[in-house]
Design a protein around this nucleic acid. Structure first.
Lengths: 251, 251
DNA sequence: AAGCGTTTGTGAAGGCACGCACAAAGTCGT
DNA sequence: ACGACTTTGTGCGTGCCTTCACAAACGCTT
């Protein structure tokens, strides 16, 4: 599972900081000093987007409430796992009834930080960068692409889905002036580390890396990797295993 | 990861013999030279492509041998984990020296099933399908794209990187006549399940799904999911957490 | 040949996640 | 109002994965 390699600041399991004074916790009548000692496990976080999508589908279908069984079915997980995952976010279900679709959707979206629209820059407008720039799934989910960058002069200036591709040197200014920004790296493997270093220096703390190479970043920066070739190779491994079993070799 | 959701035939958890328990003497061969008595854990499989890529880079750099420490560094993992992973494939290292780069590369490639070139079909030649069809990383790693399919008549007939896009109805014939095939799904979410059903019916047992939806398949079919929006949302979660910590809220 | 430094392979321990099963809590029918 | 039914929230056992730590194995030097 952690197939996805995240270099995230690991939280210390035992101790968490006592009251810092102002907590924006919702409306929980927390009698004790610590408002929400809840730490969402990484495995749970990775499933929240699935739940969110399932909830969107159910809302479109017109359902107002949904049981953990039904939602789990829609999301492709077990109901017990779903309930435990949701329990990390707090108790938003009604026993005997289920979850209110809209409310739960809102809560998960809040937790994922989708209330504010995140700025996204795409660096490397090649085959894949083009495709991602034109992908509608970003804007519809709280992400707005605010910049396209490339070094190739023949690509710079081109307009892709309403945005002009700018030279790589404009990158720093765009990131600095805009605040928190997520960078999508779709550059060749050879230059990925260098470009990433520039992004980090400019203040980017979240990187989605499509380049087939390991990039190193400071501890405060999160990197998630998407590697198409790796996925195919993993499929090939299982396919070969299946083939061998069919032939009669030992598992 | 999970994480990434793989629906693979559950491996038998019982008798797992990683490597050797009988290093004392060559008493009796408990069984006749079995080629692979080892069950490779899923988590290990998901890292093999990384190791393979790191080995390729090291080979290009001219190194002949590499220590677990150095290879782990290149692959971005811990050395102990690397050694244990490799131990599931057998013992190909030399104590006091390290691993022979070319030999290890060969062994991992064998295990991943990259000796034979896998056939890949891409279904759905939209933005992303275009990009993947033109992605050079496939052919260079043992995968050959043998078919592009779409329903849109305005796309059918178009030639993308040397292959003509064919109508979806040609899909069954192509899959059936070609043997084992991996399908890449880059269709809209609404039709993903239907297209996948056709693929499975035609004999496909490995699917790489880019559609942002859960697809259901029989037990003997492997599905891996790549979801760009989910990755961004997970990054947003961590980014928001970091922001709150910085502001002074409780973790 | 023997000792020394290096590196692998692996037993063992700890942590994390998953799933079961059930009490608590709510709704619905009568 | 009350009992029966439904569904959530979660304590707990189990198994997988990771990490540590070290003995065995190898090359190199003397």
């Amino acid at each position: 599972m952690d197939d996805d390699v995240v270099r995230s600041a690991r939280l210390r399991p035992g101790r968490n900081r006592p009251g810092a004074g102002d907590d924006l916790a919702d409306l929980g009548p927390c009698e004790s000093a610590v408002p929400m000692p809840v730490e969402v496990p990484e495995a749970t976080v990775s499933r929240l987007p699935q739940y969110l999508r399932a909830l969107s589908a159910l809302a479109e279908a017109g359902l107002r409430t949904v049981s953990s069984e039904a939602l789990a079915e829609a999301a492709g997980v077990g109901s017990a796992k779903l309930r435990k995952d949701l329990s990390y976010l707090g108790s938003y279900g009604t026993r005997g009834v289920g979850y209110e679709v809209g409310e739960l959707h809102q809560h998960i979206a809040d937790r994922l930080g989708l209330t504010s629209s995140w700025r996204v820059v795409i660096v490397g407008i090649g085959n894949l960068g083009h495709a991602l720039a034109g992908y509608g799934g970003f804007a519809s989910r709280g992400f707005s692409v605010v910049g396209l960058f490339d070094v190739d002069p023949t690509v710079v200036g081109e307009v892709v889905s309403g945005l002009r591709v700018r030279p790589l040197d404009d990158l720093e200014a765009t990131v600095r002036e805009g605040g928190a920004t997520i960078a999508v790296l779709t550059v060749p493997a050879g230059v990925a580390q260098g470009v990433c270093d520039r992004l980090v220096a400019a203040g980017v703390t979240s990187v989605l890396n499509f380049a087939p190479t390991v990039i190193r970043v400071p501890d405060h920066v999160d990197v998630r990797k998407v590697d198409l070739a790796s996925e195919l190779q993993i499929l090939a491994f299982h396919a070969q295993r299946k083939a061998h079993v069919r032939v009669g070799e030992v598992v």
